[in-house]
Design a protein around this nucleic acid. Structure first.
Length: 858
RNA sequence: GCGGGCGUGGUGGAACUGGUAGACGCGCCGGACUCAAAAUCCGGUUCUGGUGACAGAGUGUCGGUUCGAUUCCGACCGCCCGCACCA
């Protein structure tokens, strides 16, 4: 009957309007009242134009946390905004001639509508986009502060250059070393670019990880490895014959103890010495040019075949008379250490591979403890051991040898112990038009001059010319031509814009006071920061999170915020995946174009469809499911319920139609149960008078309260949902039971189900609650339920009985039964008694409330 | 290549700090209601053998520690994420 079913199509907009009218989720910049604060933030989205299932999942997770914290008595800040600069808008402008600003604004409007239909507990009054001049103008102020403080500087750095399109490519636009559009081999080209001095904070960023107790351990490990603190030594090798003013080569090594195992030196292709060699050697020059064509990404360089070029130069060993060749190698990076290494093939796998390839000598200088000098085959010996064949180091262990060799090098003035970092300064210049302009004016007389604050923001022009490749901002006919603010001479604006990671490195601080006339309102950030719970994809484990941590420390130093760490708690969720489908001729198909058959096969208009594996939803493979369509069909509650119910949120989830239907059925069931109970005559029995089945139901209710609360606190939403199903099943099972107080217990259980489920399915629970408690107001404003420990506690437990670790029986015991009681009960079991007869009990293991195990000998 | 993670029934997954593996959902099978279907409700569902209240096997593979391992250790296989220009 239609009147009995829950109509989400009218209920969802109704409750969304009711929350908005009641101002449930609005917050203040400053402390209001005595509630503790809680800042819940999900990574803000790029406005692609449509929300996808990953967004629904991300924001559903955050919304459960935000709603639960609100109910638990916190003043919750839960804002939303847009990471609105970036390449897609520029690509759209080039491909379709649209204005990137208009395109972005349109996308934001569409996504905002989609998001609002999800029913999130957001404070929309704080919304902003990073492409708002108000926001990026404040960002320009921050940059000028950084510059003044010595945290921003300019130097040369390589970019991927597409020689056909005459444009700089992002790493993702380089495919197998070629430009994605032109197909031309990509070159490395040096440009003068802006950098942020993140390395100045390297030790702080490393040490700070230890304080982030509510971060996943794996993210902290990844950041630790990324920062990559290493202790080693710089060692100077003198050239046997100077070249172009160079008479030494300085190498960095983490294994100075293996100095006597050296077999060659290797330098980066862009090392000054390599360039000096190339100037007089065409073959060297050609080799370097080849190395330049690999693209700048580390993955590309590392995956490439290790290759080298013998320069013919030789260096002398610092402690012996021996000399060694100097090679140029494509795997040595100029930016790490000194851009030069010494190769010790016996104890470094990459050096060994290189030595075998080019038939270089291999000398073992470390022997495993208690073993003779090792034979080196194709596997390097990288473990600890005792130094051999190494003059004054012979006989020492690795650590002692490191200390001694460093001391000797320092004594002779040809080396020193150094701490080195893998972390490099952050290059923030991008040759893109759709980004935040870097507020600098280049004057021939004064050099790089900051744009005066009164002239901020430096706005993007509204008529960017995308009719040719390259940086549209640079091509604009008038924008860059200005006079120098210092001397008044004709000058030109910087036409590079900021990396979009800059935009997302401080937006969380801006949310605390989004309309402030300064980048942040220090009082507001002191109140709200740090973010108590940050939620986003694991793909941001390193870069975004590290940049944001750096920014926060820098902003703290400059007085813009009051904390060092931006995110006290971090949760990283998995992706939403779906099967992909393609026709036999290789065309990708959308899921709703495909007809699935009971035997598992699929067809499209009668043709056979090839079913691909579960993969991250992506437009190119068309394996996307449009949340707007799902919400239209099943409602926002069902969509939220399903994305959280199926598996742990940190893992990938596969979207299935069946799962969505299951979620829809549960939403309907909550409503049906509420109607049923609302229709029952009111049972006025006091709850503590409930006995028998009624008391059992009350126990189920309070165990659900405890279980759901614990699961939500631990981000185990799938477990919370399993507990809610159990409670719903308990309510159904109590139908027709008769004990005293049952009616009251059923009502209590139903209200608990509603209020515990409310953070996940906020709309239907409002409707259901209004049926039962019409005068109680919005569930969104009610406090969280607290379990009665007397009802949660169990008084009996069933434990296993094992013989030799194999389960043979189960016994029922009072909670906390002692060893004697448990053992006696176990031995009374016929099967156990039988097994023990004629055997000697060697040992009895009793773990209270868990297990009894007999170790026997027969 | 380097760094990080994941792997449990037909399926998504649960299992407290090493203690009865498979909670809960989906699917499937059977039943009730219905003229019928949908919806809903009830029961069953790890595998193998057996009529059975029984026996054996079982958490990617191989091995180890332990009275006892999904959980801890080692090697391997497969999949996923990241790589700002790794010593």
């Amino acid at each position: 009957m239609a009147e009995e079913s829950y109509d989400f199509r009218t209920a969802e907009p109704h409750w969304q309007a009711a929350w908005s009218a009641a101002g449930c989720f609005a917050t203040h910049d400053k402390p209001a009242g005595s509630k503790p604060k809680c800042y819940v933030l999900e990574m803000f989205p790029y406005p692609s134009g449509k929300i996808h299932m990953g967004h629904v999942r991300n924001y559903a997770i955050g919304d459960v946390v935000a709603r639960a914290r609100r109910a638990q008595g916190y003043d919750v800040l839960h804002p939303m905004g847009w990471d609105a600069f970036g390449l897609p808008a520029e690509n759209a402008a080039r491909e379709r001639g649209v204005d990137p600003a208009a395109w972005t604004v349109q996308n934001i409007a569409a996504m905002r509508e989609d998001l609002k239909r999800v029913g999130l507990s957001l404070d929309w009054s704080r919304e902003f986009a990073t492409c708002d001049p108000d926001y990026y103008g404040q960002q320009q102020k921050i940059f000028l502060d950084f510059w003044r403080a010595g945290l921003a500087y300019r130097r040369e750095s390589a970019v991927n250059w597409d020689p056909v399109d005459m444009t700089v490519l992002a790493n993702e636009q380089v495919i197998d070393g070629r430009g994605w559009k032109s197909g031309a081999l990509v070159e490395k080209r040096k440009l003068r670019q802006w950098f942020f001095k993140i390395t100045e904070f390297a030790d702080e960023l490393l040490a700070g990880l230890d304080t982030l107790e509510r971060w996943p351990e794996r993210v902290r490990t990844m950041q630790r490895n990324w920062i990559g603190r290493s202790e080693g030594a710089n060692v100077e090798f003198s050239l046997t014959a100077p070249i172009a003013g160079h008479d030494t080569v300085k190498v960095y090594t983490t294994r100075p103890d293996t100095l006597f195992g050296v077999s060659f030196l290797a330098i980066a292709p862009d090392h000054p010495l390599a360039l000096a060699v190339a100037a007089q050697n065409d073959a060297a020059s050609a080799f370097i040019a080849e190395c330049q064509s690999s693209g700048t990404s580390e993955a590309a360089i590392e995956a490439a075949e290790k290759r080298g070029f013998d320069t013919g130069l030789r260096v002398k060993h610092p402690f012996t008379e021996a000399t060694y060749p100097v090679w140029i190698a494509n795997f040595v990076l100029m930016d790490y250490g000194t851009g030069a290494i010494f190769g010790c093939p016996a104890h470094d796998q990459r050096d060994l591979d290189f030595a075998r390839k080019y038939q270089l000598s291999v000398t073992a200088v470390v022997a495993p403890k208690g073993a003779a000098a090792p034979e080196i085959g194709d596997v390097a010996l990288t473990g600890d051991g005792v130094i051999i064949n190494s003059d004054f180091l012979t006989g020492l262990d690795v650590a002692a040898a490191k200390r001694l060799v460093i001391a000797k090098l320092e004594q002779r003035g040809i080396g020193q112990g150094v701490v080195n970092w893998r972390l490099r300064d952050w290059g923030v210049s991008r040759q893109r038009a759709w980004g935040c302009p870097i507020p600098v004016i280049h004057c021939e007389i004064c050099g790089a001059v900051p744009v005066p604050e009164r002239d901020l923001p430096v706005r993007l022009p509204e008529d960017l010319p995308f009719d040719r490749p390259g940086n549209a901002l640079d091509h604009h006919p008038t924008w860059k031509y200005v006079n120098c603010p210092q001397c008044g001479a004709p000058a030109a604006r910087e036409t590079d814009t900021f990396d979009t990671f800059v935009d997302s490195s401080w937006y969380f601080a801006r949310f605390c006071a989004p309309r402030a006339a300064t980048p942040t309102d220090i009082a507001a950030t002191k109140h709200w920061m740090p973010v108590d719970q940050y939620i986003g994809g694991i793909e941001h484990a390193i870069l975004h999170l590290l940049y944001a941590r750096f920014f926060t420390r820098a902003l703290h130093r400059l007085g813009h915020v009051g904390v060092d760490e931006p995110f006290a708690g971090l949760f990283t969720q998995g992706m939403v995946t779906h099967e992909s489908y393609r026709t036999e001729d290789g065309r990708w198909l959308y899921p709703d174009e495909v007809t699935r058959h009971p035997d598992g096969s699929a067809t499209y208009q009668g043709q056979t469809v090839i079913i691909g594996p579960n993969e991250k939803m992506s437009k190119s493979k068309r394996n996307t499911v449009d949340p707007a369509a799902v919400i239209a069909q099943f409602g926002a509650d069902a969509a939220r319920w399903f994305t959280l119910s199926d598996n742990p949120p940190e893992r990938d989830v596969e979207w299935t139609e069946a799962g969505a239907q299951g979620a829809f059925r549960f939403v309907q069931r909550v409503y049906r149960l509420a109607r049923m109970i609302a229709a029952e005559p009111r049972d006025l029995t006091a709850l503590d008078q409930a006995v028998g089945d009624a008391r059992a139901l009350r126990q189920a209710t309070h165990r659900a309260i405890a279980g759901v609360s614990e699961a939500i606190d631990g981000f185990a939403f799938n477990v919370a949902i399993a507990r809610l199903y159990e409670l719903a099943n308990a309510i159904s099972d109590s139908d027709g039971q008769k004990s005293t107080g049952l009616g009251a217990a059923r009502r209590e259980a139903m209200i608990a189900l509603i209020r515990l489920a409310a953070p996940i399915i906020p709309h239907v629970t409002e409707t259901a609650h209004a049926l039962l408690e019409p005068d109680a107001g919005l569930v969104a404003n009610l406090p969280w339920l607290v379990a009665d420990p007397d009802l949660v506690r169990r008084d009996r437990v069933t434990i296993g009985v094992q013989i030799m670790g194999k389960l043979r029986a189960a016994i029922d015991l009072p909670i906390g039964a002692d060893a004697a009681t448990a053992t006696q009960a176990a031995m009374a079991e016929p099967k156990i008694a039988q097994a023990l007869a004629g055997a000697t009990i060697v040992k009895t293991i009793h773990v209270p409330d868990r297990i009894v195990n007999f170790v026997i000998r027969s």
